[in-house]
Amino acid sequence: MDRNRPDNNRLPTFPQRMTERYHALVSEPQALSRALLSPPRKSFRVNRLKTDPDSAQARMENYGCRLEPVPWYADAFVIADYPPDSPRSEPLMLPQVLGHIHMQELASMLPPLTLSNELGNAERVLDACAAPGSKSTQIASLMANRGLLVANDKQFGRIRALKFNLERQGVLNAAITNHDLRHWPSGQHYPVILLDAPCSAEGTLRKNPHLLLRWNESLLEGHRSLQTQLILRAYDLLSPGGVLLYSTCSLAPEENEAVVDTLLREREHVTIEPIQVDGITLSPGVTAFENHRFDDRVAACARAWPHLHNIDGFFMARIRKS
């Protein structure tokens, strides 16, 4: 059993305030709550630095895994079933150990995917909050191990996992740094930046239902304040014409639209570009939430909802410095 999931009899219930918030955000709040408490699907991404989707798929099916393709990403698969005779409920597979595949939630694959065009020929990319490296390894794969990927994280304790994942996936083009983005030295600019910001992780409740026990609206303010400092610094490090992708696995407008709204107010030449991923229709950013109103331009942001997209809750803003 997943040690993060309490058994069914003890599934936590949603705090009243959280339920009220969902009523203000979606037309089917019950469906959202239900989706957030159901177990997530297992999924993986193929690492093109070491193999290709056909070979990885063939090998996994040969083991007896039942795979489902993902309509919006040829490199991703859902593991609908492991072989029935597996010695463990989640068996360890050779392609995992060799870094041919990386177990990764589908929503977490979206930010690098939406940057595919830029990453294909980028000379320098900054992954500002990179540990444990799911998106960094995907970025390196999309860069085909060319150019420079700076994979940074402030928490020293998480750098080890970042190193481990980058090495396992055969990433050659990365330099790992251990720095607080807020104090990142000026000078060098980056044409592509991913800011996968620290957040309340509300969108990952399917995997971490225990987060419900800690959920508290007042925590959102602390997150928002840090996220705002991070987005402003990241934007300042962006080359003119460059693109910054801001993402969180939170559903809360305070951590998402409100942060982008502040960037729009505090910096010049900001354009929020629409996000399009063929095969999945993401929901637009919200321009109002309870008694907050945001700049209309945040509607170009995108959100994945667990009950609509059957992936973790996720938010993305594609920001261009024009």
């Binding site: 990365a174 330099a175 030295p185």
Partner: peptide
Amino acid sequence: HLGPCELPDRPKPDSVGCL
């Protein structure tokens, strides 16, 4: 380690490429 040809000036990397 085998790593990228260019490195960031600052901050100094902890680690580069693959062993």
